[in-house]
Simulated assay, not measured.
Amino acid sequence: MDKTQIRHLFKRYINGRANGPEQNLVNYWYRSFDDEVLDINDAEKKQIKAEIWGDIQQRISFNKSYRQKRNWWLRAAAVLLPLLLGAGILYYLAYYRNSAVQTFTTYTTGTGERKMLRMKDGTVLNLNAGSTIRIADDLSKERIVDLIDGEVFFDVHKQKGTPFVIKNQAITTTVLGTAFNISAYRNIQTFSIAVVRGSVQVADDGHCLKQLQKNEELVFNRNSRSFIVKPTEDRVLDWQKGYLVLNDVPFDEMAILVEKNFGVIITTNHDKIKKSRYTTQLSTEMKPMEAAEVLAAIHHFKISGGSNHILFYE
């Protein structure tokens, strides 16, 4: 990467338009001071870092007030470029350029649809209804799956020296060879992972939460950032047998899962119904209205509406 590209990088960073990898690039240079071998103590090192970064921020702030001038960003780049080069960032730039070309292929399942995928490394994925994942096209250096929405059962093929990584928002699951189920619906506040074979490591924003073993399930609350670990429930894989299993779930979660599996939207105007918890097992072979009728009957509610939109009431 030449000086012109570096200037453009810092122009985007200073102007707040840098993407995630580009922000990490500049932040990496700042963190590189931790790796320098200097004949100073920790307190002095911390002070130097703070003073240098503070000075850079002041200069950037000053230059922002002159954005209308054509070459404002050149002055900011002139401040940062010598420091950047001195920190050995060009090596990292070369690494970033090579790693940034990683491409992904997206796979989805529709309402009530389930799909099995076999990755190039031999790993088998079973997708539940209404799920979306992205799989890295090049698995030679790192095996990455982005679980964007839904539920997936992973039977990971062991590949020595190349961990298998599943990313879902800030949650990262890392394994070598094992089998486990992840439920991570975008609009449901809980993330759960149940291990069937082997072990997995689960981390939140880079901080390890738990090393899960066989027959352990971790349930993570996205709002509170808290989690519990419990024995794996017997029916956690029943969705692969054609069942929607609701186990003491709130109304909103029930409505999302019913829509994913049956394509029908359930709503209500009653607070009591909204505050109720729902436990039942529904065959996904049912018609949407049949599933809604069973669900309402079990919880002593009435229904009205058509095949696409059903209202629960007392």
Rank of each mutant, 00 (worst) to 15 (best):
Y313S: 06
E290D: 11
D234C: 07
V101A: 13
V264W: 04
I171R: 04
R31G: 10
S304Y: 04
T284V: 09
A297E: 12
F164Q: 07
I60M: 11
M116W: 01
W73F: 14
G130I: 08
R143S: 04
S192W: 00
D248Y: 01
D39Q: 06
H309F: 06
G198P: 03
Q57M: 10
R67C: 04
D39N: 08
N24K: 14
Q5C: 07
L127H: 02
I48M: 13
E113Q: 12
G206S: 03
Y91K: 15
Y30R: 14
A94F: 14
R7I: 13
R97E: 14
A43N: 05
L117I: 11
F251D: 01
D248P: 00
L237T: 11
I273V: 09
R7S: 07
A136E: 06
F312I: 01
Y243F: 12
R222G: 01
T103D: 14
Y28K: 15
A203M: 09
M1Q: 15
F62S: 12
W73A: 08
Q58D: 14
A291T: 01
F180C: 05
V26T: 10
M286L: 12
I303C: 05
L9M: 13
N261L: 03
F301C: 07
A78S: 10
K49E: 14
K287W: 02
I48A: 11
Q57E: 14
I303T: 11
Q189V: 06
I256W: 01
R222I: 02
N15M: 09
R186L: 11
N247C: 00
F180M: 07
V124W: 08
L218A: 08
R67F: 09
K272N: 05
L295S: 07
E151G: 05
I182N: 04
G54H: 09
K302L: 10
K260H: 12
G177Q: 07
D238A: 06
D138T: 07
K141Y: 11
Q68E: 13
H207C: 01
H299S: 04
D42L: 08
T4M: 10
W72H: 06
G306T: 00
S276D: 08
A255K: 02
Q5E: 15
K49S: 13
N223M: 03
V236N: 06
N181G: 03
L257K: 09
A76V: 15
F62L: 12
D39E: 08
G263P: 09
N24L: 13
L176H: 05
E216G: 05
R7C: 04
S183H: 04
H270D: 10
K120F: 00
G177A: 09
D238R: 08
N71I: 08
R186Y: 09
L80E: 08
G263F: 08
N308G: 01
A194F: 05
N128Q: 02
S61D: 15
L9E: 11
I182K: 05
I6H: 10
V264Q: 02
D42I: 07
K141H: 14
G20C: 06
L176E: 06
I273R: 01
V165F: 03
V79Y: 13
Y185F: 13
I89R: 10
Y185H: 14
G306S: 02
L80C: 11
I48S: 06
L81A: 09
S226W: 00
D248E: 02
V249H: 00
Y243N: 10
P231K: 09
N187V: 03
K158P: 05
G86D: 14
T279W: 03
Q240F: 02
P82C: 10
E217K: 12
M289F: 07
H8Q: 15
R75F: 11
A297H: 11
G161A: 09
L295P: 07
